[in-house]
Design a protein around this nucleic acid. Sequence first.
DNA 1: TTGTACGCGTTATCAA
DNA 2: TTGATAACGCGTACAA
Lengths: 386, 386
Amino acid sequence: MIECSKCQRVESIMKAGFVRGKQRYLCKDCNYFFTLPSAQVPTKRKRHQTTIIDIARELGVSNSTVSRALHGHPDISPDTKKAILEAAIQLDYQPNQLAYSLVKSRSNTVGIIVPEFLTQFFPNVIVGAQGVLSRAGYHLMIMQSDESYETEVGNTRALLANRVDGLIVSMSHETNNYEHFQAFEKRGVPVVYFNRVCREIGTYKVVVNDYQGAFRAVEHLIANGYRRIAHLAGPRNLVISQERLRGYTEALQKYGLPVLPELTIHGDLTVEKARIYGRYLLELDHPPDAIFAVNDPTAIEILLLARAKGLRVPEQLGVVGFSDDSIAMHIGNGLTTVKQPTNLMGQTAAELILKLISEDEDTYPAETQVLETELIIRGSSVRGGR
Amino acid sequence: MIECSKCQRVESIMKAGFVRGKQRYLCKDCNYFFTLPSAQVPTKRKRHQTTIIDIARELGVSNSTVSRALHGHPDISPDTKKAILEAAIQLDYQPNQLAYSLVKSRSNTVGIIVPEFLTQFFPNVIVGAQGVLSRAGYHLMIMQSDESYETEVGNTRALLANRVDGLIVSMSHETNNYEHFQAFEKRGVPVVYFNRVCREIGTYKVVVNDYQGAFRAVEHLIANGYRRIAHLAGPRNLVISQERLRGYTEALQKYGLPVLPELTIHGDLTVEKARIYGRYLLELDHPPDAIFAVNDPTAIEILLLARAKGLRVPEQLGVVGFSDDSIAMHIGNGLTTVKQPTNLMGQTAAELILKLISEDEDTYPAETQVLETELIIRGSSVRGGR
DNA sequence: TTGTACGCGTTATCAA
DNA sequence: TTGATAACGCGTACAA
């Protein structure tokens, strides 16, 4: 059937893999590999995307020349370059980033893992990071852990397998083990932690000044005459919870108010828990006259509970949240809250990771960038003077 | 300096590239390639991730055997398999997805392009899609076009370069040219359009019944006694705008109300435009008594404008939005709105793309999945009877 | 200025 | 059951 293109024999022909979608043959006699011209090859194995080799063949030059032309290397004659670029367009060439990454061992991609997508906070951070990265020619591979440690580990594995050049991460609230992050650093892939950071690991972090934000929020409540201020806190293992709790505590202390253990309850940042613990607080024999909540969804849940119980805000109950979600402005007479610079946080993390990627050595000094918060005062906490 | 490992000569040695980060040499005499044992190689060119070849060498087997062991191929002895798996763990082996994708010409990744990230809508869709895809072993590469045609084209190019196996997309409102999407179909990469689809292109779409949602919303306003109902519409080129407008128009017609051109204004879905056009409507000599807005942010802007002008909602002005953003429940006495099954939309799109990927041929029938909406009635549109 | 010949890490085919 | 070796698409050191 098939005859050798060199010696014309038929009996010594055997199949020998595929070349660019076409069957390749080997003549055992003359030890000659060959493929048949396309007219003779009806069996199109799989669709083939045009590669630099296709361009090279089209123009009768070598693939290195094509590669040089496409990348604007200096040593190339203007004519061949022009011809190659035209052929590339004409053949609808699209570079294969996978092959590129493989040979350069660099993917031009950074990964980001966030715990959730449903509040405004993380999407805003992502938008900030995205802008900086894409301007620098990097892509962002976004993963969400869904507040699950398991999923987070899976995410890190996927990013590692895809050879991201860097990782930006805010941990799930379940996370107590950090091996999956250390795997990156072990491989020389820089990691920037933001927002949900922990003390045990990480040389590069971007956070807001949670302590000060919380301190000012509680100070503000005190200034507005609230004296029995409760705190709906976050999970104990998160630094943001700890710092906000510290701000709450020290503000009370500064103004000589007692720090009552029964007025601090640790939730898990979900609305469901907020409802349960909020109700508990409001139904105490001696209920608080204000609540400082660890985040806005929690604070909003408190507002709804208060409304359901007929409690007047801010007269009978003051409420302050944390984050300035877009709802905060609109709910009731407005929710007082500690605004975080979300977009800036993403930008900062992205800039930091870019620096770490470009530094060949790990000589970049450890760094924790602390961004400032802003207290946004609205209707939920302002009643007359003291 | 360097002597041939075979003939011990020195003069005929030349460098011949690198093997796994180590200098490789060629002895011109005996035509023998070799590398030096690691002790003799101080120059660690670049950090090296452990590969199947490392495992193979460690155990003295071939890389094919290692590959088979790692992928649970049948033809392998339990002993070697066990040894390989242990070595893999011990050497901290992480598979290289890039190399895998290159050889399989399949990335196990689908791309998704959304116009923005700042309303809840798209993040919700993404969460839905993410769940389905990750359960099927696929990753999601998320890009946002920022409502810019330019950026959208860039996004498609990036996804194409990364050889995604499929694309899920909701178009920017600037998009009027569809070549960048056709590029996918030309390469046999399936595309599923959702939400912001267009009539000119696309065989697979997932949308909600915008027409019916709008129709019911306006019908509801009419039932509540509103007679001069305006519509703050979306960009003319988007099908969602057209369909919602059609629902608005036909509902008015059904109940014998005049369709007044001056009461329909096309915006661009931004809050800024909503404010301008909303103000215009409310300051007409003969202003509307109700406004049906193309989305929730727009509707909320109307509510705020009304509040600023001292207009009572719903008595003097009825308002209905579209989407049921999480704010809608909380603002004022609640915003009546047409709820879209966002999560389901993501799931549906993901399931569809998975089907299209697995079907070898393009034999899958064209399909537009229409999901149903639900009218959520709240305080902004209910005043006594008719 | 251009071409040759690898290597990047993996899978698949075929021979042993 | 295992081992060689081509192939995926591209960049590049070195030779020509």
